[in-house]
Each structure stands twice: as structure tokens, then as C-alpha cells.
Amino acid sequence: MNPLIVSILGGLFVSDATAVAQIMVSRPIFCGPVIGLVLGDIFTGILVGIVMELLWISVVPLGNAVPPDSTVVAVSATYLAVQGPEEYRYGYILFVLLIIIPAGILFKKMDMIHRDFNSFFSHRLEDQLNEGNIGFIDKATYISVSIFVLKAAVFIFLLIMLGENLCPCLYGMLGSGIKKSLHESFFMIPSVGLGTAISTFIFKKSQTKKDFQ
């Protein structure tokens, strides 16, 4: 039952980023702990959430550029990390993140194809309006939202199903030396996010003075 609940929740969270509302339930710092709570391990969720939030802190959805999807990564990584072994626990969390992040990029590519496809609705709507079918505006919107949610949910479902089998298997192949240093490295990761945050908050100023009335 759990994978289904996580996928559906994940689908809802992911669509918040672009399609619906933008109330930021898509941010890792929110969706990580919530997924963790659902699975009964909020601490792991919050660790994943915070690390991901920091890494993605300066990623801005710019105009028509689609940033790598942090929500997909945070949700799936939390699900997989919760099941991790007790020994070198943080090492497993980091390991899962490193494997899942490329999937976030893959999801981004899918999203771009989807957004290309969406112009279909514009053209269809034009025809429908000519026929006086005003209801199609609502219909198109709701259908599109459903596609956004479903797409993300299915992607997360497949990802966690695959990851569930693959990650422990791959991790088992690593030597204990590597596991130990992965475990230690986990605590270095926030520095990447914090460094990124510093760079976003520092601006270069124009030398010519600006005059405001």
C-alpha cells in the first residue's frame, strides 16, 4: 500500500511546483518530512528534505527553462532511505540521493516534452470556442492538471519500485570502507547548498549611481 500512497502524494506535491497553486508543498523541506511522517520515520525525511532544500536553494524556475525536479528526488529518496540498513545509515541516504538525482533530470526532460505537447490544448481550444463550447476551457484545465499529477505519480511509482530492488543490491556490493566514507561524507553535503545560498545572496553593484525620486 505504501508505494501507492507515496506516489499519489508525490504526484500532488510535484504538480504544485508548476501546474497548481505554487504554495511550495513541492519544496523538499516540506515534502521530505511529510513523506517521512507517512512512512513512520520523520527524521530520515527531514534529513533528506534539508539536504535537498539546500542543494536546490537557488534553482529558480526561469521563464521557459525547467530546473531539475527536486520534489521527485526528495519524495523518492525519502521512501528509499527509510528502508535503509541501520549500519552506516547516513551513507545509505547519501547513496540513494546520488542515484536518484539523475532521475530528477530525466523527469525534467519529460516535463519539457509535456509542455511542448500542451500547445495542443491551445489549438484545440480555438476550434472548440468557434463552435461555442465554452465549457472546454474548464475541461482543458482540469484534464491538464490530472495529466500533470498522474505523470509525476507514475514516474515516482516506477522510480521507487526500481530503486527498492536496485539500491540495496548495489549498496551491498560496496566495500565497508566506501560505506564508511559515504557515511562520513553525508555531513559535508550541506556545505554545497550553503555555498550556493551565499552565492545567490551576494550581488555585484552598478558603479553608476541610481537616482530615485
Binding site: V60, L62, G63, N64, A65, T200, F203
Partner: peptide
């Protein structure tokens, strides 16, 4: 717009 400001200027 955002692309110019964040993408290029910043």
C-alpha cells in the same frame, strides 16, 4: 523579465 534578470544579469 526573470530570464534576463536571473539568467543573464545575475
Amino acid at each position: 523579465h526573470g530570464q534576463v534578470l536571473e539568467g543573464w544579469i545575475h
